[in-house]
């Protein structure tokens, strides 16, 4: 598997001075600006809210820390509910991305090389434009007077009995809008790993199955789909994880009555000035997201062991 030589001179800069600079500079940066801030958040989650500035305090005597915010995390329904809404929205968005993205990724592998390159470019291009503006584009489409909403209304009215007719849909500030915009924003993250995976699949396997009399659907179900599971998992995580912690989309198109967890963290920190509570929710969210990742790494390690030589 690994073709990296272990000869002593193979690592050309494997000498003390070079090595130290190359390792220490980025390592030190990440510890200073990523690890330490996160330790501060963890410590902060055990403090108590205070009125002074900065607005937190520790108990004056042992054990110094408090679990008040962690108790509140489970006793106040806001946190459980918003976590549930976040995971629910993220799960639906991930599923929709998979249902739309999988046939798209598979479709790309079925055209010739230069068309593949063009299609990939077309899929990546919106991703390079501003995230905020892509959300904004949907705000323009979802308003009650917009052509898109009107078009939906006309189609709907043509189908349903006249007593059900509506003048426009309430799309903005709903969970539906959040899921829709999430699917729109994160779809490339699903397509790209799926494409990378599907493109490597051996087409002769498909042909063999066809020759043995399998129908196209059976070939897909028995050959392509099982082999693309690593791509599905990678794409799924790339959509699910950022979607669960999403802040921009729910703030702009979501309903204030059904907040997602990212918005709750921001509100606790910003308008409520409750830093310990914001830190506690942040720690909880991270624990929740770490679990699927650990599972994923476990899968990866097992797949590597099974597929390695």
């Amino acid at each position: 598997m690994s073709n990296i030589s272990n000869k002593p001179h193979a690592n050309w800069f494997n000498r003390r001075g070079w090595r130290d600079i190359i390792i220490v500079a980025p390592y030190a940066w990440l510890i200073a600006f990523f690890v330490i801030p996160f330790i501060i958040v963890i410590v902060m989650s055990f403090a108590k809210t205070a009125t002074e500035s900065p607005p937190f305090a520790f108990l004056p005597e042992w054990p110094y820390i408090r679990f008040e915010t962690y108790i509140r995390l489970f006793s106040d329904s806001l946190y459980i509910r918003s976590t549930f809404i976040s995971l629910y929205n993220a799960a639906i968005a991930t599923l929709l991305c998979l249902l739309i993205g999988y046939p798209m990724a598979l479709g790309i592998t079925r055209v010739n090389k230069s068309a593949q390159r063009l299609l990939l470019m077309l899929i990546i291009l919106p991703f390079w434009t501003s995230f905020l503006l892509r959300v904004y584009a949907w705000i323009g489409l979802m308003g009650k007077n917009s052509w898109f909403n009107q078009l939906l209304t006309v189609i709907y009215n043509a189908v349903v009995p006249s007593s059900w007719e509506v003048t426009g849909f309430q799309l903005m500030n709903t969970n539906f809008a959040v899921v829709l915009v999430m699917v729109y924003s994160y779809l490339p993250f699903m397509i790209l790993p799926l494409y990378a995976n599907l493109e490597k699949l051996d087409m002769t396997l498909n042909e063999a199955a066809m020759d043995l009399g399998s129908r196209p659907w059976q070939v897909f179900k028995d050959v392509t789909l099982p082999l693309s599971i690593p791509g599905i998992i990678a794409g799924g995580l790339l959509v699910f994880i950022p979607a669960s912690g999403e802040l921009i989309i729910p703030s702009l198109v979501g309903s204030a009555a059904d907040p997602m967890i990212g918005r709750v963290i921001q509100q606790e920190f910003g308008s409520n000035r409750d830093w310990p509570m914001a830190s506690t929710v942040a720690v909880a969210l991270l624990l929740l997201l770490v679990v699927p990742l650990v599972l994923y790494n476990h899968f990866e390690a097992r797949a590597g062991k099974a597929g390695g030589t």
């Binding site: 990440l30 990523f34 801030p37 501060i40 958040v41 995580l237 950022p242 912690g245 963290i265």
Partner: peptide, 25 residues
């Protein structure tokens, strides 16, 4: 180190934001 290098990629932005702000404060 290799864990640290992938961590910011999956960290929800709102958490990175709050922790950076707390560090600077």
């Amino acid at each position: 180190f290799s864990g640290l290098v992938t961590a910011p990629l999956i960290m929800p932005e709102v958490i990175t934001g709050i922790s950076s702000l707390l560090l600077f404060i």
